[in-house]
Write a protein that binds this DNA or RNA. Sequence first.
DNA 1: TTTCTTTTCGGCACTCAGTGCCACTAGTCT
DNA 2: AGACTAGTGGCACTGAGTGCCGAAAAGAAA
Lengths: 212, 212
Amino acid sequence: MSDSDRPTPPRMGRQPLTTRADISHVALQLFLEHGFEQTTVDDVARAAGIGRRTLFRYFPSKSDLPWGDFEAKLSRMRAFLVDTDVSVPVVDALARAVVEFNQFPLEEVPYHRERMNLLLNVPALVAHSSLRYAEWRRVVSDFAAGRLGVSADALEPTTIGWVFLGASLAAYEQWLKDDDSDLIELLESAVLLLRVGFSPIPVAPVRPAVGA
Amino acid sequence: MSDSDRPTPPRMGRQPLTTRADISHVALQLFLEHGFEQTTVDDVARAAGIGRRTLFRYFPSKSDLPWGDFEAKLSRMRAFLVDTDVSVPVVDALARAVVEFNQFPLEEVPYHRERMNLLLNVPALVAHSSLRYAEWRRVVSDFAAGRLGVSADALEPTTIGWVFLGASLAAYEQWLKDDDSDLIELLESAVLLLRVGFSPIPVAPVRPAVGA
DNA sequence: TTTCTTTTCGGCACTCAGTGCCACTAGTCT
DNA sequence: AGACTAGTGGCACTGAGTGCCGAAAAGAAA
């Protein structure tokens, strides 16, 4: 902690030529212009002014390019959940976190829309994204597990992880279909479906078994 | 329908050398023995006694090999749902379909277990599987949409698709962790979580709007 | 300044998945 | 036999991703 607050840590060695964000933007531009499959990694590297080999040091795969710095977003979500007061029920906390996680500055919204359009429609990206989603689910299930006092690998927290992911992506699909729709509203609608459950017969409120 | 009931339709042209199922079995054997990444497509082709080029006519990608004939399973599930009496509520019908879909003859269970172990743990397969899962979700959301009288792309059916997929996979994860667990029981537990919903405050039973 | 050390850069060569092309093989039908 | 049809597989090619290694660019020490 003594070296994390240095303003401009004068690092050793050569300075990086570019940033993950820069490369990601250049790549997205090309993907939107010519399509994901039609764009080669060499194209991206050339457009970004770096060598192909260097690009693969910034991003482990072509499919990671549209994601940018996802790990940073996950950290923010984790922090948001940790900061949530324990009096807030698990589902409410997660509902708020989902909304928070998908809030973007107005000028970034069209850009984000195009990005998600690719991620949810290009087969190679759909496939690869599931690995990112797994990390996201882990954040959710870790939180739920902590609150429920069970292992993060148990049935309930993992199901909660899946179910919130599903609701979020279902909301995104709607959002992408309609230019005038509001992502946050859709997310809230989807989470509401989770809340009420899918039981056709109204279920009696479950009373925690005493002494279990 | 006049040619679908011929006992041995004397086809034209050369007879296929092998079957999807055969290749899939051979591949799975090698994947379990040496690992998925360590096994090349050439290895599989050689072991199956066919050319590499031929293998890619039976399966569009290496990652499809462990899935075998998934389309056939989907068709069975679709048929099961269509045959379900309309008096059975949507969620019940889906719960039964999920169970039906994951029922295997006893002798195939250990084999299925290893297969799912690969599919849920090898990153390349995890990624690719999401494309198969999308087809599965489509079966679910089509059914739900039909029952609810809305488009299959609408928020509710797609959410139902996601949520049932999530519950199923959460159950599978538990099953794989414990040799003595029962997949069907776990699936039912997971679906029960969906039924009751995740609302912390008991939600008033939703009465269907009369005349809607 | 020179030299040392550290870090990034990127060329080269390689493996492997997946594809288009095309000739070959093994069957059925006249 | 000859025509037709469908499966096979070799060959060559593209493109993603990796290991290796020397070059470039920075700070630190001499």
